[in-house]
Amino acid sequence: MQLVAGTLGKVWFLIAFTVIFWFFVDRTAKGHKLVIRRIAGFDALDEAIGRCTEMGRPVHYTFGVGELDANVLASFDVLGYVSGQCARMDTDIIITNALGEVQMMTEEIVRSAYVHAGKPDAYKADNVRFVSSVQTAYMSAILGIFQRERPGANLMLGPFFAESMMLAEAGQQIGAIQVGGTGRTIQVPFFIAACDYTLIGDELFVAGAYIGRKPLQVGAVYAQDFGKWLTLLLIVAGTILATSGNNFVTDLMKK
């Protein structure tokens, strides 16, 4: 087996990340209580669903039109939770999709959430909708859905592109409480401008751990934090050394 040149550092990082990940999964599974700081965007989910229940309006959930990636997977954790809550509170949830494969996975998640909530008959297949994989057609259809079905909450979590601005502002105009979040950092400013709560970048990827507190997801968050501490250390040490003419960290990262 031969490694591609310049990837040794990345391999070591991945190994360390994996070890830390399993270490904390094990600790959480054994009952050690691990803490995660408060994230307002997730706390707002119950408020949003509760508001819809009071007003008798549906919740709208979208992943945006981006391709199937880690953003979508993180968003699945939130969708599972939100659809379960909607099932328990007898509130409709409309999910609009732009990808065929995400549509199928979404059907599985929502149906399963209704079954787990003890209300399999309340699941409405027509509310899990494939709209369009064409970005602008998707946008125009959502504008229509907002005007005609008037969701009380608009939850936008996933890999968004330019549709982020229009969806968020259209939701704002119908008075929906809005939570937006994406790991595509370039789209975050638009959510900041138009949403009540925004999950910035990495905050979206903490969804499963924050909402579900499952050991493997909490373990992943701790491994992520390990990566950040390591990065901080590399940056501080690397820049100080580079200033004094020593390129140790730079050379180390090239290996």
Binding site: L73, E108, G201, F205, Q224, K228
Partner: peptide, 25 residues
């Protein structure tokens, strides 16, 4: 932000690659 998000992506992706995620099915 990008460095933070990258670590989040790595964490979530590894959960699938380790076969620990079943939610999407």
């Amino acid at each position: 932000m990008n460095i933070g998000a990258a670590l989040g992506i790595i964490g979530v992706s590894l959960r699938v690659i380790f076969g620990l995620e079943r939610g999407h099915l």
